[in-house]
Design a binder for these strands. Structure first.
Lengths: 285, 285
DNA sequence: GTTAGCTTGGAAAAAATATTCCATTTTGGC
DNA sequence: GCCAAAATGGAATATTTTTTCCAAGCTAAC
């Protein structure tokens, strides 16, 4: 049992396995090779299934694990499983930590720390969950529309305003439904099937936004939604749906990730439209 | 058992779960929410562990699986596991690629990666540069003012709108100078020395904002500025000045760090005012 | 070729895990 | 407010999975 303490990260385990590869017995070497080549199997299959695939006996797998200092197969498997989640170190777990390790006094700087931390997580999450094909789909819909309508009520309004600002600077025809003078539905009335509706909405989903998205969809106008999770009504009400899970600390949410997604969408659209105009300065108003 | 054939891909399962979410019983809905929020746990943990984390009985998990057409929990778990193995190249990989050849193709996902990266830096910068005494000074000024006026033109407007939204939900007397109907200066006219002016402005510093801040300062109204660097005219025009250096990628700037700072200020003010109101839900409009 | 020491295969035992079942509670219609 | 139907909790059971153990098979030194 040449390994006193087992590696606790996949990367370490990998290194240790390749390091000892030469000195292992025939069967164990066979397992080492299989493990390095099929980390997914190692993480997700049962001992007997892995044994079958690697053409060894189940007991050899146990021996292998013990040779590297683990208690048994299960504890080695944990390390392989870690690899699958560490990219995404359980977003929620991290948040939990953030909340729990926070009996720090509520000084201004502490609050700021926590919100920057939370915003940073939200950005990571955005990046991890981003689906390239959705981004491209959304951009295509915008590029081909005659006019882009934007709705975002209450908490979502700043995002809507930001999109409106940037899109108009790109030279897009764009209409922000800003509900000025209580004209929400009147403003929404001239959404045509050739346009696109960009809807931003978070819990608890302003009824006006829901209704306008519903109407748009019914009449065949593509809807792009930026919302806060798969349980949002906009999942069903949109052609492309971006789920931006803004981190929540003590039930306050930031819009950092939303702003970032919005900016990215607009810039991509800019490239797509081959507006090779001098972008410098456009965004510095 | 309303689901004859179980979804075989994670994406489908997700869709089906959100689709039926409304109609599920209390416990099953609870599980649906947990599952969508914690797909990693669903993929890797045992029934009893998941049950514990989701605060339900193990048997409910089996019922949940069956409700979606699976034989039992194990076969549903297979779908969640699929997600882990069919992952697209992780964003770390994408970032690596991006750094190695910065003339990487301008795909949507690359653009997003770069902006999230940039936003993340901006947040780090915000945290590093934050001066506790400035935060506290700003909070104190707001706490003691009779009314908070907010101005932010053009690119800064979304931040102003966000502050306006949050502050009004805190119960503060707040006025947003939104320039509606070209009434910028008329709206600014009732800023009194007992109030405070929150000015957000970035290069190239909207003249209206500069002028209003100047007037406010001349008449003795405290000015809090959120701006973009020491060269901003607001350095001189404000009592407290936050310099938020939003990282710039190809001359596009995001507002992520600004939003985060704004949120932090508001939350601190909330604590300061000892509004121990139930904050839950306040920020979910 | 023999033997000691290490390795391997496989079946049997132990442990962990998933699933079922039923008594109890909750829900919704009258 | 009552009843029937649906949902739920939790213990009991069934199943799967891991782990142990030991006999048998190699390997290499003498």
């Amino acid at each position: 049992m040449a390994q006193p303490t087992p590696p606790s990260s996949y990367e370490n385990l990998r290194t240790v396995i390749s390091g000892r590869h030469e000195t292992l017995s025939k069967r164990l070497r066979q397992i080492a090779e299989f493990a390095l080549a099929n980390p997914n199997d190692m993480a997700l299959e049962t001992v007997s299934e892995i044994a079958k695939r690697a053409a060894v006996q189940p007991s050899s797998l146990i021996r292998f694990s013990k040779a590297f200092g683990f208690d048994g197969f299960s504890s080695m498997q944990r390390v392989f499983r870690g690899r699958l989640t560490e990219r995404q170190p359980s977003y929620h777990q991290r948040l939990q930590d953030l909340k729990e390790n926070s009996d720090a006094p509520l000084t201004a700087i502490n609050v700021l720390d926590r919100f920057t931390e939370a915003a940073s997580h939200a950005l990571d999450h955005l990046r991890e969950e981003a689906r390239p094909e959705r981004l491209e789909h959304a951009i295509e819909l915008m590029a081909q529309s005659e006019r882009i309508h934007i709705i975002g009520q209450r908490r979502a309004f700043p995002v809507a305003a930001y999109l409106n600002y940037m899109l108009s600077h790109l030279g897009c025809r764009v209409s922000l439904i800003d509900s000025i003078g209580g004209m929400t539905f009147e403003q929404a009335r001239d959404i045509s099937p050739k346009d696109v509706l960009l809807a931003i909405s978070f819990q608890s989903y302003a009824p006006e936004s829901v209704e306008i998205a519903t109407q748009a969809q019914e009449q065949g106008t593509p809807v792009i939604a930026i919302t806060d999770g798969p349980l949002s009504p906009f999942s069903a009400l949109s052609d492309v749906c971006f789920e931006v899970e803004e981190t929540q600390v003590e039930s306050f949410r930031s819009l950092s990730a939303c702003m970032c997604l919005s900016l990215s969408l607009v810039v991509c659209l800019g490239y797509r439209l081959e507006k090779t105009t001098d972008f410098d300065g456009l965004f510095n108003g």
